[in-house]
Design a protein around this nucleic acid. Sequence first.
DNA 1: TTGAAAGCGCTAACAC
DNA 2: GTGTTAGCGCTTTCAA
Lengths: 336, 336
Amino acid sequence: MGSNLKDVAALAGVSVKTVSNVVNGYVHVSATTRERVQAAIDELGYRPNATARSLRSGRSGVLALAVPELGVPYFAELASLVVDAAATHGYTVLIDQTAGAKDRELVVLGGIRHHLVDGVLFSPLALGVAELRRRTDATPMVLLGERGLRGPTDHVGIDNIRAARQATRHLAERGCRRIAAIGVQSVGTGATARQRYAGYRKGLADAGLELDPALVLPAPRFHRAEGYAAMATLLELPDPPDGVFCFNDLLALGALRCLHTRGVPVPEQVALIGFDDAEEGSYATPSLSTIAPDKAAIATTAVELLLSRIRAGEPPDRPRRLTAGYALVARESSAR
Amino acid sequence: MGSNLKDVAALAGVSVKTVSNVVNGYVHVSATTRERVQAAIDELGYRPNATARSLRSGRSGVLALAVPELGVPYFAELASLVVDAAATHGYTVLIDQTAGAKDRELVVLGGIRHHLVDGVLFSPLALGVAELRRRTDATPMVLLGERGLRGPTDHVGIDNIRAARQATRHLAERGCRRIAAIGVQSVGTGATARQRYAGYRKGLADAGLELDPALVLPAPRFHRAEGYAAMATLLELPDPPDGVFCFNDLLALGALRCLHTRGVPVPEQVALIGFDDAEEGSYATPSLSTIAPDKAAIATTAVELLLSRIRAGEPPDRPRRLTAGYALVARESSAR
DNA sequence: TTGAAAGCGCTAACAC
DNA sequence: GTGTTAGCGCTTTCAA
């Protein structure tokens, strides 16, 4: 245990360089030498020291992924896909949870384990373009999430506004006339909520419906409990909605449970659509209609973009903004 | 960008050691010196190189967490808690997904990014005591999951057998006489399924019920789809069950959806209990009864045990096996 | 309180 | 095809 190249070299009676060649699969090593070195490696149980290797080569083979919280299925699924995509390229992923808190997102901008991480994938919630612009850390970074964040940073996401507009129109096409939105967030924070809200308004306009402020409810964290509470509020309105667009599936699932509890039939009396396509939604009763972003495409595209930036070794002259696809998946919760 | 201690030292007109002292918050540095050094650090935008620091100190501040897949809520929640617990101690977590595949679990045993990782938290599915015993990597490792894995490795988990027994008895106490089990796995693989099955049989015995092999269904991966399929099989039996113990919540949620689809009232005709306490279950209709392991305790205990092993710096003379608590949470799916 | 210098384990340039 | 050696950026004796 704890042996190094020198130990192996000594045991095999060769130089350090030769051992290094064998370890790294360098071709020009004679078969006998290779065998002898391999024997020494096995005998000593030698493992290359990744830290020393990184220091020397300037590459660690580690990416960082910063998300609000893995407890939210969307981020868990995304993380899962990112980890697999990175593994495909021989990279490992280090996870950072920000809870969507501004101070913790700023820490991510400042740099995580400087030089221990070759690149960063970041899904910010609270940060805006201004903060992004102020970043000085030179580690390559790719943002995950909404398209249209007009910052200086590389970016992979779907067209949120268009998707939200389509979701809203979908409800209108199913005969909904009073369509609520759950998930609006206070100004200054995340682009996600703002963009989905913008899409919602456009969708209403497309259908010739008026925006009723009473039908627009906030939800700072996109959790089930907030969806439940917001739905309860909506049901107490003198003129409750007949359709609800929730800004993510968790909110929709919470709303759905609230509707069940109050005995409101879905989709007959209230139709529902979510966003994210959490697997959970397809097993709910009724199954949940949703916007399904192509998460696999987001993950692989982002990883590959990041790796290309790492390989280039220099800051991009202009940011790349890549768009992944999505689909509207109509299920039982809006079938009417 | 890309400045190092030497650059800072030169600019501040002090030695490298002094800069290092300032960076590391060493107390015996005069106020003026500290100020001057800090100014130089700010001017150059200096960030300590974590890799170099690790190589020198032998500590990276990185833990690895190896789980089957983050797409499964239990592992996502656990990962979330582990990441937070590690952060409390200044550690970052690197994620590895094994898919529960033996070959990939063996890779974890072999060592992930040797020396770049101070310790490993591992939730194996396929590996048994034999493989664990053969491990030669000296990196401290703590197993997450089932108690009673009588291997040579440190371990934190709940008493699965007792919990499963209690879940089964719970259904019997609610009047169920034909209690099925979904989630059995073929011999040789994971302790989890085996232990929950053992608990199931004990629970049946406690209630004076016979084991009916037709009511015991396999599920290799503990996913929703498998729960759905298994439930469908059970409903086609000439004498279908009146209660089902699913070895995790995902299986139970799949089963629940199947029951809904077939119009079988839950819990009146078939009562259901799961395992893991995924938040999803408490928002299902009917809400899902479950065994709720104290995941936060598992995460913090495991991280602290691992850190203590890292600090000790030597292999443990004997493995520690720590047990976290759990609770049976009775909800609507078994309320009768 | 601060400085000088060695060395963590590896890779890569250069020699032979 | 193989060996020698410098040095990645840092911490850490040891001196001063």
